[in-house]
Amino acid sequence: MEQWLVQSLVLGLKMFLIVNGLLIAAAYLVYFERKISAWIQNRIGPNRVGPLGLFQSFADVFKLYLKEDIIPTLANKGFHAIAPVISIGIAIAVYAVIPFGEYFYLGGEKVYLSIAPHINVGLLFILGMSSVGVYGLTLAGWSSNNKYSLLGGLRSSAQMISYELSMGLSLIGVLMISGSLDLMQIVQSQTGGQWNIFFQPLGFIIFLVSAFAETNRTPFDLPEAEPELVGGYHTEYSGMKFGLFFLAEYVNMVTACAMMVLLFFGGWDVPFLYETLGLEQGSVLRALVQFGVVVGKMIPFLFLFIQTRWSLPRFRYDQLMSLGWKVMLPLALANIAVTGIIMMIFQ
């Protein structure tokens, strides 16, 4: 078979697997969110659809498909329709550059565990894409022609712009240490337990807080604060359009966790694991174990995201802004300076 055909087939397969895997992961995150919140709140949680309620998410999505799609009369219909597409599209597009492992050989063909491996602007692409993601929320809020939605949309844009800055700056320390924007190389630079969390603890904390703000999760879920803004930017959405926003939130959460694992927790690196198991570089088994390690490392963070949501109250708008600009930003800048000075001394 011709080279390009094989490559495009492999690429297509990878895309298919990643997109579907993501959506299923998001669906199960919803399930686990509901289960964990139920445990926290002295409830039982979903337990009717399927064994232990495991098919609840699918039932929910099916219900959303069947629901009437209401577009408000005075809404800007084009933007109203495109906003959820932007949200989910951007959320998924980020996975073009996120690697879940190194590579394996399949019939002499080198297959990477990433759609676009070794992209030299990988990290910038992710940050850029999450910046674009805010358009989805802002457009949704603006085009609905509803004052609550508008407030939600405005809040989300202000919040995202503020926290994008500290998020980007908190990662500069990582870039200085690894010397690359390519996610694969960043992970490789942490091989052997030299994880960035040990060199960049402050950077990690800033990134963690910013990630909560970027994904609109409690305590930063102001754009959709139910008590005051009803539903925020998605007040006027129903049916699967609402479902897309919902999915996008969970996909973003997975992205944030993946970023934390890859940038700060050594990605698929576990000291002595691969040597002990005797897995060769490039074998299928090794790639599978790497994938498992990345996903396994993400689970505690996902749990943290969910647990935080159900135990913390929500910030107020001005408190959020002052935290972002008066605390996070100076800390992130100080982190860069300190990292630079230490690197100068030890070089």
Binding site: Q41, N42, R43, T218, P219, W310, L312, P313, R314
Partner: peptide, 16 residues
Amino acid sequence: TSMDVGALTLFLWTFR
């Protein structure tokens, strides 16, 4: 009060 500031869990605890 706690639900209005976003702490939903306490609301359900008090309801229990």
